[in-house]
Design a binder for these strands. Structure first.
Lengths: 233, 233
DNA sequence: GCACACAAGTTTGCATACAAACTCGGTTTC
DNA sequence: GAAACCGAGTTTGTATGCAAACTTGTGTGC
């Protein structure tokens, strides 16, 4: 059930059918969901046997995981990366930069149909019952996806996806994710309003504020400073 | 000489001494500098022989290059990625988001010594002779580096580095890089002024405008729409 | 003269082989 | 009893082996 929450932004990375890609996607899921614990050493032969492949595809996927920042090199071999609270803060800021900009692009140049899609998802979400957690997770993801799509920038979208896998495998991140789902609608409404007004600056501010509030639990628990204050009008 | 220009943001990616890392760094340089041409197929055995290693480290570094977006999969094997004008535009926008945010963080929470370093680099750059191209390249890079460092966000810094390797191996990118160096000082002065005033919003606007102007040649030549207008105060 | 087929040669994707580097338990020495 | 040393057992980093998939060029049929 936690795994379900946690996967709300995880997309697979497809290559023309290659074993190493399958291994990559499986390991990534297992790291992000915490099935493979932080700091756990990754033994090539273990993984290979568990996944019924030889060491070669495992090693290749470890290279990709390392580049993605999910796995860190030891003197010998690799281990699941453990994120410090400060790294999680940094990643939240990164998301503020990326998703904020995506929102402003969506507002200033999203096509009418892009924007209609955003509104439709938002309205569908308003009608959900509080108990329907699965649907709340899905529509939250859809909402953010629709904004990225409306930004007309695939590079930006990719960067957002990447930043999304970064702060999952910690207990605090789970609380955060829960909070995001709870307070979502009010924040989303502000974002939608700004986009409908075609006000890029307002959309960017609203999205940054949304992400910042999403992490409110986190700042409180860790006692870390909050990221950059959202600029007042 | 073009290679020198083009390398202004390229840092190596060190792992505890492993052959595949060396191969990765070499190939990355060769792709970014255009020594390996876009769309050129990468034959494992060729590369292995040229670099005097076996196919294994070559294959592993290709996985990393693929994740970095510098190499694309073919049905079989890999080729150097060719960037379309639109992808280059997208990457420019990504840089506006990332470096703009870094500038605002530098302004609002950079330490006095961080900011002193930025000012010092800027002033050193003002004194350069027009002919001293190599020094202009270096100080430009130093300037952007100093701002990233002052942002206090290594994740953001990494993302900026990554975005920096994206649009090199095109002729247009070279012209762009040239222009950036020519008009740099005026733009840099605006950024420095905003940072000294501790005005995050102004620093962010100035940095975005700087990157946007850097690509002016590019928008003109390709006839593509410019990215998001910088928001007026 | 054109197209299709077939075979030789590449080149890959995956598996495995092997030596070097590290780990860790036990034993010896002080 | 603690520390240092040794060696068996892992586990890695790199090289190589092998069959399947693709490419290419030639020859054959129409």
């Amino acid at each position: 059930m936690c795994a379900k929450l946690v996967l709300f932004m995880l997309h697979d990375d497809p290559l023309p059918s290659r074993l190493s890609s399958d291994v990559y996607n499986v390991l990534r899921r297992q790291i992000v969901t915490g099935e493979l614990r932080p700091n756990q050493p990754l033994i090539e032969l273990d993984l290979a046997e568990r996944l019924q492949v030889s060491r070669t595809p495992v090693r290749e996927s470890l290279q990709r995981l390392a580049h993605a920042g999910l796995v860190v090199p030891r003197k010998r071999g690799w281990a699941v990366r453990e994120f410090t609270p400060d790294e999680i803060r940094q990643n939240a800021e990164l998301r503020m930069a990326l998703e904020g900009y995506a929102a402003s692009l969506a507002a200033t140049r999203g096509s009418p149909s892009d924007i209609a899609a955003i509104v439709a998802i938002h309205e569908r979400r308003l009608k959900l019952r509080r108990s329907d957690e699965e649907m709340r997770v899905k529509t939250n993801r859809d909402f953010h996806d629709a904004i990225m799509r409306a930004s007309g920038n695939g590079r930006l979208t990719d960067a957002i996806y990447h930043s999304g896998q970064f702060y999952f495998n910690t207990p605090i991140a789970r609380a955060t994710t829960g909070e995001e789902l709870a307070l979502g609608n009010a924040d989303h409404a502000l974002i939608v309003a700004a986009i409908l007004k075609r006000d890029g600056a307002a959309a960017e501010r609203a999205m940054r504020a949304h992400i910042q509030r999403t992490f409110a639990v986190f700042w409180r628990v860790t006692g870390l400073a909050e990221p950059l204050q959202v600029q007042p009008r």
